[in-house]
Computed example of a mutant assay.
Amino acid sequence: MQITLICSAGMSTSMLVARMDEAAKKKGIDVVISAHSWTNLEKVIKQTDILLIGPQLSYAEEDLRAQYPDMPMAVIDSIKYGTMNGDAVLEDALALQK
């Protein structure tokens, strides 16, 4: 499974990805998690199973849902994002699985 996080530049989510990777390894979950900038989304969307949107891009959620209607996605909770709570964000992502 591929979880893709997008944000304005792809930088701030990189730390969160590392924490999510740690949480997945501890739980024995086989998942690939990556962070990308909003501008690179088209390049990675075909490999994406779950899309997580950085809080700073929450304004784009409606457009993304219209563009990718079958893609499980959510805006990352701003508190979980701000505290870099990889375990909680991973759980939220997994809950989106179809």
Rank of each mutant, 00 (worst) to 15 (best):
M1Q: 07
T4I: 00
T4Y: 00
I6W: 01
I6V: 05
S8E: 07
S12G: 03
T13E: 05
T13N: 04
S14T: 10
L16P: 06
L16K: 04
L16T: 02
V17L: 05
E22N: 14
E22T: 13
G28F: 04
V32I: 05
A35F: 03
H36M: 07
W38N: 05
T39E: 09
T39Q: 09
K43E: 11
K43N: 10
I45T: 11
K46C: 08
K46I: 10
I50K: 08
I50G: 08
I50P: 10
L51W: 02
L52H: 08
L52G: 10
L52K: 07
I53E: 10
I53K: 06
S58Y: 09
Y59R: 00
A60Q: 15
E61A: 14
E62R: 13
A66H: 10
Q67F: 03
Y68A: 14
P69E: 12
D70R: 14
M71A: 12
P72K: 06
A74C: 05
I76C: 07
D77S: 12
S78K: 07
I79G: 06
G82P: 12
M84A: 01
N85W: 04
D87E: 15
D87I: 02
A88F: 00
V89N: 08
E91L: 00
D92N: 05
L94N: 09
L96K: 11
Q97N: 12
